[in-house]
Computed example of a mutant assay.
Amino acid sequence: MTTIDTIIFDLGGVLIDWNPEYVFLKAFHGDRNKMQWFLDNVCTSAWNENQDAGYPLDQATEDLIVRFPEYENLIKMYYGDWENMLGGSIDETVHILETLVKLNKYKIVALTNWSHETFPIALKRFNFLSWFDGIVVSGEEKTRKPFAKIYTTTLDRYNIKAKNAIFIDDSLRNIEAAKKLHINGIHFKSPKQLIETLKSYNIYIP
């Protein structure tokens, strides 16, 4: 059995509920189909991920308005009203984090795809972010998951051995990238599933 001494958490979708739907369903007056078309074709996940890698929000907004001038107001809303996309903490996972911190047996680190321009909002809102031994924010590093550089940066910065670490993320793509670097991975689906999977590493959450 591998000795685990470090646990690396993703934030969005694992500890923090974030969803553009919280803003755009209202903007589209409850029309989920129209909202989904807009998020699939205009303010896409791929577009947002570019900002997670450090691209300026204002420039990204201007770029998209050039391509889709008819949606200017909605495009401006994406980052203008971004704070309202934060739905709150995922309390059951925060409890898991708190338990691991109190055990005082593990180095606890966060690795998140997040714009460096909006991350300060999360730092102010979520006190549990201060519990980590370190947080690697993609926007500050000018790269993002699933690219290898952000994983190796995390390992090097906090003196982590890949084989002794577990990475928890709700994106299977990001987990597979971590595993290529010999980091143990847990594809997060629910707090209950996480608790059960941690048992296979002899980590028990009451």
Rank of each mutant, 00 (worst) to 15 (best):
D170M: 04
K199L: 05
A177N: 03
K199N: 11
N174Q: 12
Y201R: 00
E176V: 14
L198M: 07
E176N: 11
A178D: 02
I195C: 12
A177L: 04
L194H: 02
K192A: 09
H187M: 11
K163H: 07
E196R: 06
N184T: 13
S171Y: 08
P191L: 12
S190I: 07
S190V: 07
D170V: 01
S200T: 12
I175Q: 02
I168M: 08
R173F: 00
N184L: 10
L198P: 03
F167C: 00
I195N: 13
I168Y: 09
K180G: 08
L181M: 11
K192P: 00
I183H: 01
Q193K: 14
I168Q: 08
Q193P: 09
P191S: 14
K179P: 14
L181E: 08
S171R: 10
N164A: 08
L194M: 10
E176P: 10
I175R: 00
A177Q: 01
S190Q: 11
K189M: 14
D170L: 00
I175V: 13
K163N: 10
P191K: 14
N174L: 08
I168A: 02
L198H: 05
Y201A: 02
I168T: 08
L181N: 07
I183Y: 01
K192G: 05
I175D: 00
F188G: 01
L194P: 06
L194G: 06
I166V: 01
K163R: 12
F167R: 02
S200F: 00
A165M: 10
K163S: 10
N184E: 09
H182S: 12
N164Y: 04
Q193W: 06
F188Q: 01
R173N: 06
I186C: 02
F167Y: 12
S171N: 10
I195D: 13
S200K: 06
N164R: 07
I183V: 11
K199W: 09
L198D: 01
S171A: 14
I183P: 04
Q193D: 13
S171C: 12
G185D: 01
E196D: 05
K163A: 07
L194V: 07
D169N: 08
I166M: 02
P191Y: 14
G185H: 02
G185R: 05
A165S: 09
G185L: 00
K179V: 15
E176I: 13
K163Y: 03
N174M: 10
K199C: 07
K192S: 08
T197P: 01
K180S: 13
A177K: 04
N184G: 10
N174D: 10
S190E: 10
P191C: 14
Q193I: 08
S190P: 05
I186L: 06
